[in-house]
Design a binder for these strands. Structure first.
Lengths: 124, 124, 124, 124
DNA sequence: GTGGTCTAGACCACG
DNA sequence: GTGGTCTAGACCACA
C-alpha cells in the first residue's frame, strides 16, 4: 500500500504523509473510509509507531484525515482539505513554471505536458 | 537583496541558495557578474560565513555559479545549469499538477495560469 | 582502517573520501553495509566530526554512499556510482599515459603493467 | 601558447606549470630552448609576475627546466626530468586502472585505449 | 544515538 | 581581500 524509500533524503514520516495524502486525494481511499491503525501500519512497515503517529497528526492538522477517539482515523471529504494545501501547491506550480521558462522551456510545452499527465503518463 | 525567514523550517543556506539561484536564472545577476563575497554577504545578512559558503558550494556543484579561489564567485551561463535541475523542476511541476487536478482544478485553469505568469503576475 | 597523512598537501577530508571510496569500490565494504558513524570515525581518527561529515556529504553526492538521517551512512551499489567518476578516471588515465609515453615509456610496457595490476601487484 | 581557465578549480600557477611541462615533455619546446621570461609571460597572460615565478620555481625543482641567472630559463633534457615525476605518473596510472577495473571496465578496453591515445585521439 | 544545521573563530593558499 | 580548510562546540529533527 505504501512504499518507503530509506535512501530518500526525506524523513520517513513525510514519505508516509505524502503517500497517504495521495491515496486520499486520488480517491483510492474514499471519503470516510477507515485508514489502518497506527499500530497496524507500524508493524506492516516495520517502523516505529511514533513515526506513524507523527504522520497522522500532521495529516489531521492539514484537514486530510480526521480521527475519532477509540475508533480510528478516516479519510476526510475532499472539500474539507484545507485551502492552504492548494495555496502551497499553486506556489509550487508557479515556482516550477517560472524557472523552467527562464531556462528556456516554452509555455506551450508545459501546457502540453499537463494534458499528457491527464492521459496517464509523460514520455520521458 | 535576499530575504531570510528564520521561522521557516527550511535551513537558512537553502533559502540563500534559492534566492541566489533565482537572481541568476532570472538574469538579475548577469553571466560572469560577480556575486557578493562570502564575508560580505554574511555580514550583510548577519549570519555566519560558513553558512554562506555552504550555499555557494552547492550552487557551484549545481552549475549555477562558479568560484575562483582568491577572486570571488560569479554567475554561470544559463546553459551550464545542470539538466538535473530541470528534472527536479519537472518533478515538482508534475506533482503539483496531478494533485491540483485531483482536488478539482481544471487543466484549462492551470494552462491559463501559465500564460498569466508570463504576463508578469497572477492575481492572488 | 584509514591512514591520514597530515604532511600531505591534500586536505584531510579528501584523503578520507579517497580511502572510503576505495573500500566501497573494491568491495571491502559491501553494498548496503553500514559505514562508521560520523562521530565514531571522528574520534577514531582524532579529527573533527565536521571534517568527516564533509567527506561523507561529498561521497553521497558522488553516488558512492547513501545516508539516512538518524540511521547512518551505507555503501551504495556499484552501479549507482556516477559516471562522472569514470569520466574523471579516464581523464587521469589518459593524462598519465600520454606523459609517460613522452618520457620514453613504451605502450607495451604500460599494457603489461595493466595485467600485472590484475594479478595483485606491481613489483616496485 | 598557454591557455588559462579561470573557472578551473586548479590554481593559476598550477595550470601554468602543467602547460609548460607539457610543452617541454612533448618536445614543442626543445631541449635547452629558452622559455619566455617571467615578466614577458606575465604581461602576455595578464597576470601577476609572482604567479609565474612560483610556477617556474617549482618546475625547476622538478628538473623540468633550469635557470641561468641573468640569462633566463631553459628546457631541461628529458633525461634530467626527475624520476619522481615518473613515479607520480605511475601512481596516477595504477590508481585509475584499478578503480576502473573495479567499476567494471575490462583490461583489454584500457589497453586498446592506450593505442588510440598514440594515434592522436580517443573517440568518446 | 544518528546525521543536519549553525555559530565563532582560526589558519592557509592564492593572487 | 578572497575562498578553502579545520576545529570546537551547540542545538535540533529523526527514529
Amino acid at each position: 500500500m505504501l512504499e518507503l524509500n530509506y535512501r530518500d533524503t526525506r524523513p520517513i514520516y513525510e514519505q508516509i504523509k505524502d503517500g497517504l495524502r495521495k491515496l486520499v486525494v486520488s480517491g483510492v481511499i474514499r471519503q470516510d473510509e477507515k485508514l489502518p491503525s497506527v499500530r497496524e501500519l507500524a508493524s506492516q512497515l516495520a517502523i516505529n509507531p511514533n513515526t506513524i503517529q507523527k504522520a497522522y497528526r500532521e495529516l489531521e492538522q492539514e484537514g486530510c484525515i480526521y480521527t475519532v477517539a477509540g475508533k480510528g482515523s478516516f479519510a476526510a471529504p475532499l472539500s474539507d482539505i484545507s485551502s492552504s494545501r492548494q495555496t502551497a501547491l499553486f506556489k509550487q506550480f508557479d515556482g516550477a513554471v517560472t524557472e523552467l521558462v527562464y531556462l528556456g522551456r516554452k509555455p506551450d510545452e508545459l501546457k502540453e505536458r499537463i494534458d499528457q499527465l491527464q492521459q496517464g503518463g509523460v514520455q520521458k
